[in-house]
Amino acid sequence: MNRTDRSDQSRSVSSVSSRPSLRWRVVDIAVASVIGVASGLIFWVFGLIPLYDALEALVPGLGGLMNGLWVFAGPLALFIVRKPGSGLYAEVIACFVEMILGSQWSAISELIPALLQGLAAEIVFAIVAYRIWTWWMAMICGTAASLGTWVYELFHKFAAIAPGGKYGLAFVITAAISGAVIAGLAMWGVMIAIAKTGALDRFASGRSVRFPSEK
């Protein structure tokens, strides 16, 4: 009862002011989840690359450099859907998809990093109340998502390896750069490219690319 009242109220408020509607539509859920699904499939394919684990473990900084590839689901969903929680949601779906595909890397142990990465990406846009959507915000968001992995690794890898040591510092610096470039800037470009095909016309993100004069 309460829930309906509140949602109706928020809808009428949002249409009066020009504030973005933060209420999730069904199409927001469907698109965020399919971004999660597609990302999960891609993560799963990466997981099949032979010798990647060996290189990542042994070459300092390589794990960090590749980290952007593992965290882009959340930022991409945020750039497209622009609803609170969309980054978190897409990350979690991606993680479940890996689980359904029978991920060798026991995806559930990735649920917690997924939550951390999603949350980190989310916080960046929450701070600006989901109102600023630019490429540089995208880079900050990608960096944050990537540092989510680092926070997780503080409890795992960096319990055994000193986080302030050379290996640890190499990881955090490369992870931040990789997040900014791959999960941030590149995904922003992907969003624009998708929008140009007209597939995002039902989204504010798509309309801002295709019809920039409209508000």
Binding site: V27, A30, V34, I35, A38, I194, A199
Partner: peptide, 12 residues
Amino acid sequence: LVLSIRRSTQLA
């Protein structure tokens, strides 16, 4: 990715 977004809007 584009195809899957189109499919998911139909699904919605």
